[in-house]
Nucleic acid binder design. Structure first.
Length: 501
RNA sequence: GCUGCUAUAGUGUAGACCGGCCAAUCAUGAGGGACUCUCACUCCCUCGACUGGGGUUCGAAUCCCCAUAGCAGCACCA
């Protein structure tokens, strides 16, 4: 049966199936349902302000955002700045900008550094409940004991002794490293990670940029407290937090709170870019990278600069989902998502990398009209006026005997010793097709703008069409090269960032 | 070392909870073709996977056990 016959037959026996066939299937993927989410959710994104957001943050924030949008409710941004050592004052703004770029539906914002009194208060209550003690042991010594499942002497202190020590901590009677408040868990717990962890510690230096304090909570305490106080119902985070979920459970139990529903997704390996804040900062300092948006970094501002849109990142992350399997992030898949968005709107232009000038013997003066977008004639054309002298991409004519300059005419090439002889070969597209001549981009001599296309693996230098100057901050397609974001146009010089083919 | 999680095509993902409709979905990618004055877009065709071994069962990608591999945690970081 031919396809047409099959279609006819289907029409006679089951017209409703035929209708189904012609439907365009929208592949917006549905992620698994969350239990207890039917009446809305309260979720959170809790970055540490130590640098700009990167792809790892994008996954966490987008997946939580996805569920808030799906079920309705609130989306809390919680800035976790309880470690003065890991706070970069400039990162507060960067995080805010990146969140804006991502388009997250944040409804509430909290800074943990504003909430120290809340943590102090609940820490005292936890001590009173007998759920925590102030430990004055050397951390190394404590660790040894813990691994053996043994208690340190401080664990036997009375509530009064602990309260006294706690007050002295707050009164600045101790220095960094001298004391820590530990949550009493279970020293016999089979998982050593679960045994008596720290809830509060002292940091004397550096000073916190937002608050005058030296006693700070550790994340397992502040996170549990805030998740409860802020009414968080569901938490989606990486599996590196599985142990923390277990530790935080003790806080919930001591206070008689109901913990949120947790989902821990698998590790996402991201290759090809630098992600570690320290690595990025060091590279920027040493001049290896131009800044937080250097193309070699995995920050959101870097991929934005490369012309990747937030929606593409979102689609890629939802596609990846919340599976517990460890995965490797696929740039290829992200590029495909981005092309979906960018291809319909990107205007087409010629960019000639590594240009060589040739004189086309016998070529008439000719005006070429190339569509700004081949699928949308209404956008009009770029007009390029060519005489005998044109610029061609070196790599595309090497070894060729005939090529067609797109929308212009055909040329014949002959290498005679050191000299490349180029002659006019007519306007016929059919001729070019018949000879299987490549159709390549070109530029008239004189009108092109110097243009650098910045790529991860080396820049392309060349010339582009003058109209590109009007495309600043937009993504264009350089025909036969790929999509690129026009980053700047200064003094007639264009800088573009390569996105993908 | 101790604890835990995971294992479906190159990549991501569905199916797994409630075994049969799975000779395993969709996307991406690769190869081929159509269209096209781009190596873009669109369309068509093809390629490619249930980690291994046992067990339960009439029947296992799905349940159980073992092995292997990967990952995470065992901070006075988040």
């Amino acid at each position: 049966m031919t396809p047409a016959e099959r279609k006819n037959r289907l029409e006679t026996i089951a017209p409703e199936l035929l209708a189904e066939l012609s439907e365009t299937h929208e592949h917006t993927r549905e992620l698994p349902a969350l239990e207890g989410a039917e009446n809305g959710v309260v979720m959170r994104f809790a970055p540490n302000p130590s640098g700009p957001l990167h792809l790892g943050h994008a996954r966490a924030s987008i997946l939580n955002d996805y569920y808030v949008r799906r079920y309705g409710g609130r989306y809390v941004l919680r800035i976790e700045d309880t470690d003065p050592r890991r706070v970069d004052p400039e990162a507060y703004d960067m995080v805010r900008e990146d969140i804006e770029w991502l388009g997250l539906g944040i409804t509430d914002i909290f800074y943990q550094s504003d909430r120290l009194d809340i943590y102090y208060d609940l820490c005292r209550k936890l001590i009173e409940l007998g759920g925590a003690y102030v430990c004055v042991c050397d951390s190394e010594r404590f660790r040894e004991l813990k691994l053996k499942g043994k208690a340190c002497p401080c664990r036997e202190q009375t509530v009064e002794e602990n309260l006294d020590l706690w007050q002295r901590m707050l009164d600045n009677e101790f220095y960094e490293g001298d004391v820590t408040v530990r949550v009493k868990t279970d020293l016999a717990h089979p998982d050593p990670a679960m045994r008596d962890y720290s809830a509060m510690r002292i940091v004397n230096s550096p000073l916190h940029p937002r608050v005058d304090a030296t006693v700070f909570p550790l994340m397992n305490f502040s996170v549990a407290v805030d998740d409860h106080l802020l009414g968080i119902t569901h938490v989606i985070r990486g599996k590196d937090h599985i142990a923390n979920t277990g530790r935080q459970r003790y806080i919930f139990d001591y206070f008689g709170w109901k913990p949120p529903v947790y989902r821990h997704y698998g590790r996402m390996g991201i290759s090809g870019v630098v992600l570690s804040t320290s690595g990025m900062r060091e590279g920027i300092r040493s001049g290896l990278y131009t800044g937080w948006d250097d193309v070699h970094l995995g920050t959101l501002r870097a991929i934005a600069r490369r012309g990747i849109e937030a929606e593409a990142v979102r689609n890629a992350m939802v596609d990846i989902g919340i599976g517990e399997t460890d995965i490797s992030f696929s740039w290829e898949n992200l590029y495909a998502k981005n092309k979906e968005i960018v291809d319909p709107k990107a205007n087409r232009y010629f960019f000639v990398p590594d240009p060589i000038e040739v004189t086309v013997e016998g070529a008439p003066r000719h005006e070429a009209h190339a569509a700004l977008h081949p699928n949308d004639p209404s956008r009009g054309v770029r007009t390029l006026v060519a005489g005998e002298r044109v610029l061609l991409p070196k790599a595309d004519i090497e070894g060729k005997s005939m090529v067609r300059l797109k929308d212009l005419y055909n040329i014949r090439l002959k290498q005679v010793g050191e000299v490349l002889e180029v002659s006019y070969a007519g306007e016929s597209l059919e001729d070019a097709r018949r000879e299987k001549a490549p159709i390549i981009q070109w530029l008239p001599v004189g009108t092109g703008l110097p243009c650098t296309v910045i790529r991860q693996d080396g820049d392309l230098a060349g010339l582009c069409e003058p109209l590109v100057a009007g495309e600043a901050d937009r993504v264009v397609q350089f025909e036969r090269i790929g999509f690129a974001r026009i980053d700047s146009v200064e003094d007639g010089r264009v800088t573009a960032y390569f996105a993908h083919r």
